[in-house]
Every structure is written in C-alpha cells, then in structure tokens.
Design a binder for these strands. Sequence first.
DNA 1: CTGAAAGCGCTTACAG
DNA 2: CTGAAAGCGCTTACAG
Lengths: 351, 351
Amino acid sequence: MSIAPPARRRITLSDVARGSGVSRATVSLVLRGSPLVHGDTRARVETELKRQGYVYHRGAANLRRNVSTSVALVINDLSNPFFAEFASGVDEALAGSGYVTLLGSTGESVERQRAVLTSLLEHDPAGIILSPAEGSDGAQLRTLVGARTPVLVFNRELPDACWDFLALDNVSGAKLATGHLLQRGHRRIAFFGGHRDSSSCRQRREGYRHALTEAGVTPEPQWLVECAPTRLEAARQVGALFVRDPAPTAAVCYNDAVALGLMAGLAARGRRAGDDFAVVGFDDIPEASVSAPPLTTIAVDPRARGRQAAELILQRLRDPDAPARTTVASVHLQPRASSDAPRALDPGVSP
Amino acid sequence: MSIAPPARRRITLSDVARGSGVSRATVSLVLRGSPLVHGDTRARVETELKRQGYVYHRGAANLRRNVSTSVALVINDLSNPFFAEFASGVDEALAGSGYVTLLGSTGESVERQRAVLTSLLEHDPAGIILSPAEGSDGAQLRTLVGARTPVLVFNRELPDACWDFLALDNVSGAKLATGHLLQRGHRRIAFFGGHRDSSSCRQRREGYRHALTEAGVTPEPQWLVECAPTRLEAARQVGALFVRDPAPTAAVCYNDAVALGLMAGLAARGRRAGDDFAVVGFDDIPEASVSAPPLTTIAVDPRARGRQAAELILQRLRDPDAPARTTVASVHLQPRASSDAPRALDPGVSP
DNA sequence: CTGAAAGCGCTTACAG
DNA sequence: CTGAAAGCGCTTACAG
C-alpha cells in the first residue's frame, strides 16, 4: 500500500469517494459506521481513507448536523493549583465522553471574562463550565451568553443567572475547621483573609461564626482580618492579628494561599505555626502537604469536582429543559501539623 | 429597543439580513468591518445584530475561508504544576492573538496521546503544541499528524519528526546545580531520580557528569540512582543512596518532585536536607519555595516557556515553509536552604 | 445497497 | 455601495 505524498491540500470526502469509485454519501456512511453499506464497499473505502490519510472534519459535520462536540471551560487561571486540578478533572471527563475542552482564563477580571466568553461562544460550545471572576454580574452574563448555551457555574454563586451551580460546602468546611481548633483547646480563633464581597468568603465566615457560637464563644470583631486571597497580601496582614490583647491563638484561613502567607508572616515574627499558633487552611492545594509545617486544611478534591462539573454539564446537554439545579459537594478535614496545639495551651510540651 | 425572546434556534446572518432589509452579503461585510458598506446601512445592521442577539459562527466562517483559529495544546497532565504553568502561559499568549486553546492530556501514555491527537486533529487546529509523552515515537507521530498541521514540540526531543522544538537547557541547568554543590564544598554528589531513556534525564545527567569531571571528581556509578519521577517513588528509593560508604553528601535531582520525595525520605531516616545533606531540584515548581526546607532548584519559568511556545507556533503559522528550528530556553539557579552546607563539611556551624 | 441533491452558516469574487 | 450565486466539507432524507 503506497502512502500519498505529503499533501498541503486537505483531503476531503470527495477525494476518497473518487479514489474508491463511490459517491461522497457512501463514504460518509462508512465513516459513521452505517450498517447500510455492503462489506466489500466498506473495505474498499476504508483502505482508501487510510491510503490518502483522510482526516475527518468534525467542524463541517457538526455544522451540517447542528451539533457541537466541544465544551468551554472558563476559570480564573491555571497558575492557581486549585483551578489546574479542577481543569484536569474536567478535561479528563469531557475527553472520556468525546468532547474537546476549549480553554479560557479570566485572571479574575470581569472585563477579560466578558471578552473570553464572547470569543469562546463564537466557537459554538455545546456548553460552558464557568467559575465566575470575582464581582461578576449574573444578569449581565446571562445576557451575554444567551439562552442557547447551557452553563454550569462552579464555586462562586451567580444569582439572577438561573444556571446550574456546583457549590463547595463552604459553611460545613469552615465549621469543620473551627471545630477542629475548638477541640484542640482554642477559644480565641481568628478568621483570616478573603473579602466580604466574595460569596465563598461569606459562607466560610458564616460556618466559622456558627461553630464558635455553638461552642459558647462570642466572636470578637478584631478576629476578622480581611485581605486579598494571595500569599503575599496575607503575609503583609499578619500584624493585624496581634494589635490587641488578648490576641487570637489560632486562625481559620479563607484558603490555603492565605494560610501559607500567614505562616510566612508568623515566621517573620519569630513564631511558628503548629508551635505557638494554630493554622487551618481551605482547599488542600498541593503545597499544603509540603509546607513547613504541613498545613491542616479543608480538602475539596478539585480534580473530583472537575469530573463532577463535566458530568453535570453533560447531563444538562441531554436534558436542556430541566429546571436549574444546585449541587453541593462535600468537603473534609485534612489534619496536619500546622494546627497542633500551641505550647501555651499544652503544658506537656517543653518550650 | 426591544430584546428578542430567548431563542433556542440559532440566529443567523439571514435573520439579521431579513430584519434590516439587506442581503446576507452586506451583513457579512459589516461583521468583518469592510469599508465598502455605507455608514447608514452599517448602523442599521449593527442595531439589528444587537437586537437579535446574533452570535458569529466562527466555525462556519473558517470552513468557508479555509482557515483555523484554534491551536491544540497536548501535555502530560494539568495536575503537574509545571505543565499547568506552561499551559497558563500558552493560553495567555494564544488568547492575546485571537486563537482559542484546545486542551488535551496524555497522562504520559503513548496510547492516550494517539487518541487525543486524533480527536484534536478532527477539530482542525491551525497548529499543535505538543509535550510528548515518554516513549513517543517521532516517525509514528509524524504519520499520525500528517504534513498539514505544524507542530511545536516542547520539553522532550522527538527525533525523526522534523518539527520545531522548544528545549530547556537541561545540560547547563544540571551543570549549574552541580557547580553550586561543588562550590559549597561537596565532592560526593549523587544524581537522583529520572529514567535513562528520557532525553531530558540523559541531558541533565550529562551536565552533572561534565561539571564533576571539570572539577576533577570522578563520578561513581553508585551515585546514579534511578526512579520514576514522582515524589512517592523517590521517597522509596532514598535508601539506595546510602548502601555503600562513603555515601554521597549531596544530590542533584532529576526534578523537584523527586527532590521533595528525597527530602521526605531523608526525614524518615532522621536526617534533614540543608542540614546534613544538600539537595538541589529542577523546575522550580510552586511547592519548591514552601517546602521544609525551601528547595534550591533550577528555575525554568514554565509560564514564560508557555508564552514562548505560543509565539513559536504562531510564527510557524505565518511561515509554514521555513526549515524546522530548535530554540533553547535558558534556565537559572534559584538558591534556597535545602542546599546549605551540611554540618559535616562546615565546622563553623554548631551541631 | 448506492447516488443525486439540498442545506448547515458563512465569505467572496463578480455584476450592477 | 449592494445583491445573486457559488462553494467550504460534511450529512441525510429521498429515489432507485
């Protein structure tokens, strides 16, 4: 069997039809595995497909059939390991169902999110998995995307959009984190990092407050320290925890990035998490297990969440008219050294 | 201005043409910003485009124009922060040039790589950025992809494929790492992790050997310890470093994952990197800066490499007939605590 | 079982 | 400056 010369020109159904002496329709039927084609014809066509190095043009087929085999994934940024793991799970599940993933990054900018969605929509995705940039306006996004393309929102709630939503159980997670510290003897527990206007932060604070109240502890306002959810900003804000006496002995952090920043800031003050201050993060990013000390955190398994998001959007594609649904993914505590009891609270440890 | 009812049906050029009393051709010219259209006509059409919520179907346009506005990115796995950063850089640069990124993960399996490439090719990417799975056969991939779609190979060399190649300067990197340890007084330096059959591992070993030889040190065979490039496997293999006396006092590691595993393995033996053994990694993944101790490593800035890869493939699209080129990206040493001189070699430090 | 024909949504010479 | 017509690569009733 001879191999065709390296062709710049695209090989089309017509080329193969001509080469095997049948019509384009017959070649198409062979490609789509139709039982209508005679065995001999099929074999002849298949040989010719290989000989010419035919590549199916799914875009043309989809155009004709009025279907799409891609799903757009719009996230903050792959540099964030939480989203990288999530994207990895999405891609794995989508690929397994014959879809291709169109990638888009917002960099947490509403402006870029608008541009990215517009560009991706022009590529006619069957659906969109969207982790909204902070400050997104649901109604506005709804107008931008329109009613034709189903969207699964992940992580950050988007009211007014009437889309499916995959939520992390932020309230329970923060309760678990706070309960863990209470159980280790802490009473003065801060909530460190995040912004009031982020829905995930509000929910985590709510869980924190609830756990404290249930344990008979009244949260002091100065235990709430805001900061942008990055390591650097967190390290800069550590001082705010210790401006008033008595200072907190432990902190539930908005997320792991903030927790790592807090630990760095503690170190800069000659203190050490897990030694004279207890820290719990949120997310369980890969760094959490190798930091010094390893970070106790709330694990959300972003990779599994990605697979779940993919399943949910595929389900929606099958049933476009079902009412919008919210799915809450459970989280669990991953205890590590950063939340060990501080020396001040544990007389059994020598200084 | 009234908003059209939420339409399930796609709004096409014909709808807009009908709505604004012109032909489809004119609407198309408006969309593409042609100066041929009269100002009044343009305004009328643009109003109608908005009113109906028209979404450009780039796939149909590309089909007609015989162009493509997507680039496929095929990597090992986004769970690996090195590739996540790389992908982030690729996507950033591609989006900036109006291309959309089609994502594919091989999970380091030649089998899956084949399937993923086949699927992505059917989506007609203008080009492919490929970080080949270990054990890839260049000639075979060449046959699979064909001559129509340009490929930029990243990270792992693919002989016989005649494609552009973006290489990391592995030899120089390993020389830097080894030189750093030599300078700190080490003579018995191991090369830990990686596989003989990986080209990047071979090159890193070559740089290591070269630096040792230049310093008058003859590398001992037992200083070469192979293992799969994962944290877990590395931790399991640590014992192999110490089976014979005199044992090495330092190690250049194949990559950061292996280095982190080595540090964990040392800890399990009651030893500590940077204290009584010096460790240098390769890649500078995010974990490196927060490990205990922070990991000295060779930084390759994968995000910048991603942007560079995108630039290279776009350049290739502009000039498909230029000869294939190899680009070598330079790397640099990022010193941290894990390579501090061991106590045994530095009498100035108290035990 | 196979082929001729229409059509998916768009673009682009070509007339006018 | 605008419109009618052909065509990108494919699929799918519809005849035969």
